[in-house]
């Protein structure tokens, strides 16, 4: 969109330029994928929740994953982050095969996720929530726990980093409050900033805008764009099409467990298959027939 051109940041321009020549079709290869999934399938009983033939996520971009309820977006997230195991399929993160890798190891590799139903640790303070996010803490070994000199220096470093992030997400005034006293929107912010404490390369946000008021949505948008500016890749699930259009460089559409369309936001908003998937113009028919 011409009007947006001036407001786009440097990184956004780079990301969009890299994706400009990518054909808008499902499973298309990207110039520099950070995450690739191939033949990933997961069924629960008779229902196939996810059946992705191939999908690639471009490094340094903001990619939106959209689709109607029950399309398998969250299940796909769970599969990629090893919270669930696919029946078949292979997937790679940053060139490393993730098959058989446990969930907690994916965070060490630089892949972090948030949850649709926000998981703030309610009976811990906001700053404790944040400090928990840091990886590679020496004091997390129980034998070091009793020897504060082994971890105090690192703890101070982590606390400084946590405070800086809290200030950036405007949560610093709640620093010492219980996370359970935060509002829904603040919890979303806390969860996102806690995820950033792991120093991720890929941030996967599951419905970051759900239940967030419009004013906070604007600042969340800015924060997500800020992640790309810092060199992170963002993959997020969202229903709010305005927001998707506003911040994403690339959009992937899922329905009935499959990837039915990919493309830039403009290409997607005029794609008849996507409109059908959302509005159900051809109810009862397979969504792939029209493609």
């Amino acid at each position: 969109m011409a009007t947006d051109e001036q407001t786009l940041s440097e990184t956004a321009r780079i990301a969009r330029a890299a994706l400009a020549n990518v054909a808008p079709e499902p499973g298309v290869a990207k110039p520099d994928p950070i995450m690739t999934a191939e033949g990933v399938r997961r069924s629960f009983g008779g229902i196939t929740a996810v059946d992705v033939e191939r999908v690639e996520i471009q490094r340094g971009s903001i990619t939106a994953l959209i689709g109607p309820n029950g399309a398998g977006k969250t299940t796909f997230f769970n599969l990629m982050t090893a919270f669930d195991t696919p029946d078949t399929g292979k997937w790679w993160f940053d060139g490393k095969d993730l098959e058989g890798v446990q969930a907690h190891k994916t965070a060490d590799m630089g892949m972090v996720r948030t949850f649709q139903l926000t998981k703030s640790l309610t009976k811990m303070s906001v700053i404790e929530n944040m400090k928990l996010g840091a990886t590679g803490q020496k004091g997390e070994k129980w034998w070091n726990g009793l020897l504060p000199f082994t971890w105090l220096a690192q703890e101070r470093e982590i606390e400084a980093r946590a405070d800086a992030l809290l200030a950036r997400f405007k949560l610093d005034h709640m620093r010492n409050e219980y996370a359970g006293t935060l509002s829904g929107g603040q919890r979303k912010l806390l969860e996102m900033s806690r995820a950033l404490m792991t120093n991720p390369k890929l941030v996967m946000l599951d419905e970051p805008m759900a239940g967030v008021n419009p004013a906070l949505k604007q600042s969340l948008n800015q924060h997500i764009k800020g992640l790309r500016d810092e060199g992170m890749t963002v993959l997020f699930v969202e229903h709010d099409m305005d927001m998707v259009h506003d911040i994403s460089d690339w959009v992937i559409v899922m329905a009935e467990g499959m990837i039915i369309a990919e493309g830039t936001p403009d290409q997607i908003s005029s794609n008849p298959a996507v409109i059908d998937a959302y509005l159900g113009a051809h109810q009862g028919k397979s969504l792939l027939e029209d493609l």
């Binding site: 982050t81 969930a103 994916t106 998981k119 640790l121 811990m124 928990l132 990886t135 404490m197 792991t198």
Partner: peptide
């Protein structure tokens, strides 16, 4: 303490 609150959240943090 984090595990008591929500073990999936703690797992997602590595």
């Amino acid at each position: 303490k984090g595990i008591r609150e929500d073990e999936d959240a703690v797992r997602s943090l590595g």
